[in-house]
Design a binder for these strands. Sequence first.
DNA 1: CAGTGGTCTAGACCACACT
DNA 2: GTGTGGTCTAGACCACTGC
Lengths: 261, 261
Amino acid sequence: MNTTTLTENTASPALSTVAAAASFSPLYQQIKSLVLQSLQAGEWKPGDPIPSEFELAARYKVSQGTVRKAIDELAKEHLLVRRQGKGTFVATHAEQQVQFRFLKLKPDNPQSDAQGPAERHIIDCKRLRAPTPVAQVLGLRAGEAVFQVRRVLSFDQVPTIFEDIWLPGAAFKGLTAERLSADTRPMYAMFESDFGIRMVRAQERLRAVLPSPEVCEWLRVASDTPLLKVERMAFTYHDTPMEWRIGVYLTDTRHYLNELN
Amino acid sequence: MNTTTLTENTASPALSTVAAAASFSPLYQQIKSLVLQSLQAGEWKPGDPIPSEFELAARYKVSQGTVRKAIDELAKEHLLVRRQGKGTFVATHAEQQVQFRFLKLKPDNPQSDAQGPAERHIIDCKRLRAPTPVAQVLGLRAGEAVFQVRRVLSFDQVPTIFEDIWLPGAAFKGLTAERLSADTRPMYAMFESDFGIRMVRAQERLRAVLPSPEVCEWLRVASDTPLLKVERMAFTYHDTPMEWRIGVYLTDTRHYLNELN
DNA sequence: CAGTGGTCTAGACCACACT
DNA sequence: GTGTGGTCTAGACCACTGC
């Protein structure tokens, strides 16, 4: 029933085809998904400005207010960033402000270190055929190529995080330990610039565990030290899974901070 | 400079005094804070409908669209709930939908239990003089009265969560173990109806720990079982701290789920 | 049917940034 | 100054609810 409404909307004849093909929702939702398509297609790259609200309104044959509402939602989802007087930009993990947006481990004493993982050590980066569980969570066929990256993050010389990262091989063709080690930016910033992949959303499952012998060595802890296990699924546009990451965190001088709203 | 603008805004003369006293922000922010005041003052109680957008627009002498934007934000913060065709209501923890909004521990196998803590066992509820750390986080003077509630939550007969809850004595006058045990609703729902206190926002800090001897007994686990320690600060309106809760979770068949946006 | 929230428009003006 | 996003208004119509 929404379809008829939208198709008959004389103010937006250009959208009739879209309405039939894509969505049966409010106009601003259709605009939102059109913008989303442009983002995914790479029409505007991370850091770039997108057209002004009036330009988009003209392009889609709707009023500026409708475009505004669509952009508002995309901005709240951190896909776009508005800057008054300048324009609206495609969000990026490279900005100083939102770097490590997904890293929730904070020092108990905020003044101890001035943010940012001090040191990152890549252990290895292997190209493998996906084990079944990895293939499943990443939405691949068993045996397809994947990359496995393992690394240790240290704060103030103290190894604190051990991570085991799985990435689809097709999307990350050419990834090597050398490239990962050489890059000083956050990993997700490199994924954007080098592979055109932007992580948009993630989901983490937390547990308390005891370390495996291997983890004991990398984090230099006893085998009875309780660790926080953080299992992360990260998604690009349209909820496509793009990373599976299993981390273990040392939480004796740091904690995982979560805001509940 | 915003003040002048607002004071001179001929469409909203009724707000000039407010603008001078309260905020130097957009009109809809002022409306938002006025509504917030009414909520805090208990003018509308949890579950009640608030006046319609047009009524509020008339009361505050602004346009309906401005009221709408204010309510939109309050709805996104879960302080209000909109229901098309019916009205806008004061949110409550009693609604089936959003019960246990702050409990992020989910079963690994979603179908195992059908949501909702199966059993709750109140260990004790004591009225004490606040220990210094408790007084500090709750914003009280050291030695002021506080309640300490301890309890165990079990899922499928398995004790899974041990909690130590601290509440300001003044606000919760008359709280007893009996009342807590008798009530079948979520604790926060009882706080609303019996004490007029609504928890609006919370913050949790997570760590992996080993259990104390006491916790070992209550959760019936070995002393080398790693547990997830969850330290929660809960706030009412205007970010007033109203609860400090230290919980330890057994995470062998459950996990703490967190969405990152 | 009347009343509520939800969407959309059109136009005005403000605040900010660059040039 | 010009162009951008940010706020505010007024009025129209749609969608849902309950009498």
